[in-house]
Design a protein around this nucleic acid. Structure first.
Lengths: 338, 338
DNA sequence: ATGAAAGCGCTAACAC
DNA sequence: GTGTTAGCGCTTTCAT
């Protein structure tokens, strides 16, 4: 029989399909005997509930949409890993969408989720996203939304982020405490809050330790190994003195290290370098890379758990949105250890 | 209005809901004027098609289930990245499930997909999976299935893999050509074909170059950095002579390098090391790690494209299953360059 | 403890 | 070119 339904089971047992439906859903008013008969027959026929029909009728799909920039970025795949595990343990499934940093793709993703009647959306915005129109629409419609890592500030939604300001501050402070004074900062040209905050932490740490901020030590460009090399190249070419680099991200920090070593400058003796993200390679390169850990798996789990907690309330948006802020962890390694 | 339906649009325009349905689906028999009116009203009301209803009725969900061991493994997140992008371009969405290398989780994933009435399943089996019962059931039911990387040999389904035998052969041959002769092989205790094949390639390369196979040079254990260290530790302790290591995977190779260097043995001068997978860190460590690239993104795209091609046929399983085998690419770097 | 009946929002075959 | 009708496979309310 091709795809048996509750009607098929009902026919076999000479009961109505609603009895079968109740039995399968373990309804208290159904006798044990009936339940067992139904379950046995269901198994024998190879019955499988049709979630489409169930969801359509009940209005709950048990599906959560997850929207991330790209699974090719370790940070995001790691967070999704955590979210999926927790959601799965709690009976939810994941519909996955990648924006590839495009605003247009991002809106398509949201649209897809809405059409699929997901029970909620967990998202980290694309680098292109500045307007919050469609996210605001989601909220107005009452669709549960949670943002992580890259959030839209003005949106009254729960979120899980790390304290990027603090991360920037700690990274810079670490360099200062190690005796570095002329600290370069490489940041992203992308208008993402996370990078602006790291930058702000850098500026404030300098201020707190009485080190003058110098605009010529700040570089803005693409998040890439290549850009890291380029920054060092320019610094050297223009003979700008510096003794440390705080990069907003690890690959860029790696590029900086490579270019420094290529120029015969020793790390960490002459120039200290610290990154951000704690990518896997950082612990294995020479010198090992100091960086800020973002607690990715924890972020995924926290995001999922907060989301589930809120989902249990009658109204997802009833209270002031809860914002979980994780602490970035300093991973002090060789590249700053002089 | 909370979630307008085609009936709401129909009421506004004084037409029947089926006219609206046709207009929205761009049915040729509907006048331009009506279509425009419908589209305008749909937009005004914030109408969004209910895919659950559409899928239930039409029997097609436009959802593909993707089952992988873990998104925390770069290889898999990268392949999923590729698959999602291609599927997305073709109007399909992704339901994601991680088995976390557990057979039980894997069957739950398949069950979930079947209940969700996915249009097909793309999977890479867990390390625990040896029986193909439930996969066989999928096929019997006619649900499109494609396996990638980790496949079940006897299953008549399309697949995309890399030639692990060839990879093992090339890696070993590379070491031999570089003058290494006493080649250790670190493999996995897991009963996965991919590792058995790499091992077979190793054995055959030795044979072809007239180098005797020695069982004491083969280690079986957990895929981990730690196990790599452990193997070297044992070799040194037992004073077994060796001058090269071919590890089934990069992290294990890294562990080997670390332990070698800790013991004052230089890589690649005294001992050459080659891994497998081309993890990101390999290009950045010292010495840079020679390895076999698995063409992950390409694998994802090929898998998705083959799947889509087959989906277009009347019967997914009509012809003999197409098996795409990608060539592993030798990435010769410093760790074997003497 | 079980049955009857309505309907979730859509597709599609058949009318006219 | 548009309307009518019949479900897809379930959940759920109201009966009995």
């Amino acid at each position: 029989m091709q795809k048996p339904t509750i009607h098929d089971i009902a026919r076999e047992l000479n009961v109505t399909f609603s009895t079968v439906a109740r039995a399968l859903n373990d309804h208290p008013a159904i006798s044990i005997a009936t339940k067992e008969a139904v379950r046995e027959t269901a198994k024998r026929l190879g019955y499988r509930q049709n979630k489409l029909a169930s969801s359509l009728r009940s209005g709950r799909s048990n599906i959560i949409g997850i929207l991330v920039p790209s699974l090719d970025v370790t940070f995001f795949s790691s967070v999704v890993h955590g979210i999926e595990n927790v959601m799965n343990e709690n009976g939810y499934n994941i519909l996955l969408y990648q924006s590839n940093e495009s605003f247009k793709q991002e809106s398509k993703g949201i649209e897809t989720f809405l059409q699929a009647r997901v029970d909620g959306i967990i998202s980290s915005i694309s680098a292109e996203t500045t307007k919050d129109e469609f996210y605001a629409e989601i909220i107005k419609k009452g669709v549960p939304l949670l943002l992580f890592d890259r959030v839209l500030e003005n949106l009254p939604v729960p979120s899980v982020t790390i304290d990027d300001y603090k991360g920037g501050f700690i990274a810079t402070e670490h360099l200062i405490k190690k005796g570095y004074r002329q600290i370069v900062h490489i940041t992203s040209e992308q208008k993402l809050k996370i990078f602006a905050e790291r930058f702000r932490g850098y500026v404030d740490a300098l201020k707190q330790y009485g080190i003058p901020f110098r605009e010529e030590l700040v570089f803005r460009g693409k998040v890439s190994l290549e850009f890291g090399r380029q920054c060092i190249h320019e610094l050297l070419q223009q003979r700008i003195a510096f003794d440390a680099v705080f990069s907003m991200e690890d690959y860029t920090a790696l590029g900086a290290i490579q270019e420094l070593m290529a120029a015969g400058i020793s790390v960490p003796e002459q120039v200290g370098v610290i990154g951000f993200a704690n990518e896997a390679f950082g612990a294995y390169i020479t010198p090992t890379l100091s960086t800020m850990d973002q607690q990715t798996v924890r972020m995924g789990r926290e995001a999922a758990q907060l989301f589930l907690k809120l989902l249990k309330k009658k109204n997802f948006y009833e209270a002031a949105p809860e914002k979980i802020v994780l602490e970035p962890l300093l991973m002090a390694r060789q590249s700053t250890n002089r």
